[in-house]
Amino acid sequence: MHHAAAGTRRIPLAVAFAAGALATAIAVALGLLLGRGDLGDPALRETLLRLRLYRAAVAFGTGAALAVGGVLVQGLFRNPLASPSVLGATAGASLGGQLAMLLVATLGAGLGTAIAPEMFLPLGCMAGALLALVVLLTIVRGTRDLLVLLLCGFLLSSLCVSIGAFLTTVGQKSWELGRAMLAFTVGGVAGAGPRQVAVVWAIAGIGAVAAWAWARPLDVMLSGQEEAESLGVDTRVVRRWCVVWTALLSAGAVAVGGNIGFVGLVVPNAMRALVGVGHRALVPASALAGGVFLVLCDVAARMVPAHGELPLGVVTGLIGAPMFLIMLARSHLWGGGRA
C-alpha cells in the first residue's frame, strides 16, 4: 500500500485524529468541570462555565500555536531540539508585551480610546515579534546558511531578554505593574476573555493552515538544503515564510498566554513518534495535541494546591522537561538519527 504522505506512520491517520478528537473533548470537559468554585451553585454555574470555557479555549489556541510553531522551526532547522525561541520571536514578543504594559501603566488614559486597553498587550507582542523578525531577516539577508540564522536568532533573543529584564526592573516602581509583568513572564491564561480567544484562535488557525501548506517543501527539506534545492525546492522562500509564520504563531501565543515553555519542543516530537515525520500529518496532529496538552496543564495549574494558582509556564516546564528527557532517552527524535 502506498503512503500518500511522507513518513512512516506508527498508527493509521484516521485512528490518530479520532483519538485527538476524543482527547480534545475530554480535556475541554475537564477544563469546564474542574477548578475552584462550586458548579452546584445555580447562581455561579453559568459564570463559572463561561469563564472556564474562555480559559480552555485560550489555552487550546495557545498550545496549538506553540506546537505548530515548533513543527515549523524544527522542520526548518532539521533539528528536533529547535523551538520558536531560537528565532528570537518569543523573546521579541515578550519584550513587546512588557513594553506595552509599561506604556499603558505610564501613559494610561493618554493613549486614547481607539484601541481597547486589554488589546495593547497582544498588539505589543505582535509588534515585538515582527520587529525581531525584521531585524533577523535584515541581518541574514542573502545568506543560505541556517547556522547564521540560528546564531543571529540566539543573539537577538539574548538582547530582547536583557532589555525585557531591564523593563521589568523599571516596572517594579509600581507594585501592581511589577506583579503584572512578573505574571506575564511566567505565563498563564487566567482572566481570558472573548477578545483573547479571538486573537489566539485566528492566529493559531491561520498559522496551522499556512504551516500545512508548506508541508511538502518541508518534507523534502528533511534531506537538507542542497538536496532540497536540487529537487526543486526554493529553500529561501520556504525559509522566509516559515520564519514569518513561526514569529506570528509565537507572538499570538505569548500575547495571550505569556511565556509558556516546552510546548513547541515536546509536542511535535511526541507526535512524530505517533504519526511519523511527514508534515502533512504532523502539523494538524501537533496543533490538536498542543491544544489538549495546554488545556490539561491549565487544569493542573488550577488543581494543584498552592498559594493562588500555579503559573502555567511552571506547569508546562514541570511536565515538559521530564517528558522531553524520556523521549530523548527513547531516541524517538527523528529515528534516533542526527539532530
Binding site: 511522507a6 513518513g7 512512516t8 518534507d219 523534502v220 537538507g224 529537487l231 511527514g278 527523528w334
Partner: peptide, 18 residues
C-alpha cells in the same frame, strides 16, 4: 546525504516528483 529522518524508502524516492 543529510537525510536521517525515518522516511520510508518509497517516500524518499517520491521526493523526486516534487
Amino acid at each position: 546525504t543529510q537525510l536521517s529522518a525515518t522516511l520510508a524508502v518509497r517516500d524518499v524516492v517520491a521526493q523526486g516528483r516534487f
